[in-house]
Structures are given as structure tokens and as C-alpha cells.
């Protein structure tokens, strides 16, 4: 077992096959995510980015390989994945706010039920986080009364309510109208500056270049290339990466 305390997520030989081994969504992925890192995961559609991200908190169960989260093997039958997931927040493309609950209740549900936080403490924490994303006046609103950008900012602070050690984002701005992308990226940038560890599947190359400490380029279920943003963007040696960047930039 890796005893490196800086490593939050350690992935070894991760494979995810569908239909026997006909579809290799993930084909032997090995990488680590260290404390404070912002890892941008880029690549063409269908290359396995979502499957990789969702494997990290076991929303997808790997076919093979190991994933250590803070030195615990998450796929082991002895592991209580529910407890580990409290420490890994996730933000989805389609927000997935709970439509039957107000913004405040969306945020306080998990900490109150799972961490046994008192109502007052949870609401105080929620208000602080709402202030951070400039939505303190929307605490009583319901999700349907929010714009897409507001929904995603709420989804982010909902995840933060559990004080996670890492945040996983799956295309957090892909479902947004262009004018709302910035407000969400700004929040993510702020979190990065505060030292939050993040893994972000994204098509926002500007964000990857500016905020990421490392970029992973995926293709056909494999990591085709990984490196610092400079290495990846400034002088792409890989032909496929060049083609991909030409398309998205």
C-alpha cells in the first residue's frame, strides 16, 4: 500500500469493460492525484473521461484494477463506500439538485443526516458557502427558480457542505448557456486557489490551461498523454492530441 500522504487517489491498472470485453471504456489506467492538485481530464467524446471520474467514487464498478482513496482500497468488500463518498464530492453536468427541496435543504440534508450536524450549524455553514458563491439571497428558492449557472454553483456548495477532501467534476459547464459558464468557472478557480483537490472533466481548454496543475488527455479508454498544461498545450507532440485541440480550441 502506498504510504505517501500526499497522494489522495491512487489508480492502478483500472479497467472497465462493457458487454464482456467488447467495449473497453477504460483500458488500463494508472495515475495518481495528489493533495492540492487540479487535474483536468480532456479528450474526445466516448474516450472514457466520465467512466474514469465515476470510477473514482465507485458510481461505476471497475472490471479490474485498484483505486486507493486516502490509502483505502475502495473496491474492497470490507470498505464502506458510503463513508468514503462523504469525503469525495461530485458535481454533475446536469446539476442534479433535488427539486423537492429548497436550496438550503439541498445543502443541509447530507451533513445533517450523515454527519449529524445540528440544524443551526448546518444552516450557518450553508450561509457562509452561499455567500462565497454570491447566492446568499437564494437560500429559500427552489431549484426550478434558478438559472443554470446558479444551479451549478449551488451544486458545488452542496458538495462542499460535506467538507470533502477532493471534488470530482464531470463537465460542469457543458449544459450551461455560454454567458453562464464564466460564473461557474470562477467558483472553481477560487476553490483551486484555496487548495482544494479537484479532478475536472472539461472541454474548457482555457480553464485547463489556466487553472489545472496537470492535464490528462484520454483516448479510447487510455491515458494518451499527461503533463503540465504547458507540456500539453504549448507543443503537442501527439498527433491525436493536435487533432483534438484543433477541434476544440
Amino acid at each position: 500500500m502506498s504510504a505517501n500522504n500526499d497522494v489522495i487517489i491512487d489508480v492502478k491498472g483500472l479497467k472497465k469493460y462493457y458487454k464482456g470485453d467488447e467495449i473497453k471504456a477504460l483500458d488500463d489506467i494508472t495515475t495518481t492525484i495528489k493533495k492540492g492538485e487540479v487535474v483536468a481530464i480532456i479528450g474526445p467524446s466516448g474516450s472514457g473521461k466520465s467512466t474514469f471520474l465515476r470510477s473514482l467514487n465507485l458510481l461505476e464498478v471497475p472490471t479490474d484494477g485498484t483505486i486507493l482513496f486516502e490509502n483505502t482500497d475502495i473496491t474492497s468488500p470490507e470498505t464502506n463506500i458510503n463513508v468514503l463518498r462523504q469525503k469525495m464530492g461530485m458535481v454533475f453536468q446536469h446539476f442534479n439538485l433535488f427539486p423537492h427541496l429548497s436550496v438550503m435543504d439541498n445543502m443541509t440534508l447530507a451533513p445533517r443526516k450523515l454527519l449529524k450536524m445540528s440544524k443551526d450549524d448546518a444552516e450557518k455553514k450553508a450561509k457562509d458557502l452561499l455567500k462565497m458563491v454570491a447566492l446568499e439571497d437564494r437560500a429559500r428558492a427552489f431549484p426550478s427558480q434558478l438559472s443554470g449557472g446558479q444551479k451549478q454553483r449551488i451544486a458545488i456548495v452542496r458538495a462542499l457542505m460535506m467538507s470533502p477532501d477532493v471534488l470530482l467534476f464531470d463537465e460542469p459547464t457543458s449544459a450551461l448557456d455560454p454567458e453562464m459558464v464564466g460564473e461557474v468557472l470562477d467558483v472553481m478557480k477560487k476553490l483551486a486557489q484555496e487548495g482544494m483537490t479537484m479532478a475536472v472533466v472539461t472541454h474548457e481548454m482555457g480553464f485547463a490551461r489556466e487553472v489545472a496543475s496537470r492535464v490528462i488527455f484520454m483516448e479510447n479508454g487510455r491515458i494518451a498523454l499527461e503533463g503540465t498544461p504547458e507540456e500539453v498545450f504549448n507543443n503537442p507532440s501527439n498527433e491525436r492530441l493536435k487533432t483534438f485541440l484543433a477541434k476544440v480550441l
Binding site: 458510503n82 463518498r85 461530485m90 454533475f92 442534479n96 433535488f98 440534508l109 450523515l114
Partner: peptide, 27 residues
Amino acid sequence: IDNGQFEAGRSLGFNYAQTMIYIIIPQ
């Protein structure tokens, strides 16, 4: 109910039953 609701619940750390009780069944 959209499966995303279920995944959102599970990703916060709710187990299957809690996700059903607090998130899926009310909707």
C-alpha cells in the same frame, strides 16, 4: 425519477435506503 437524482444522493454518501427515503420516494 432521473437516475441523476439517485447518483447525486449516493455521491453525497447516502446509502441506498437513505437515498430512497430522502430523495427518490418523496419525488
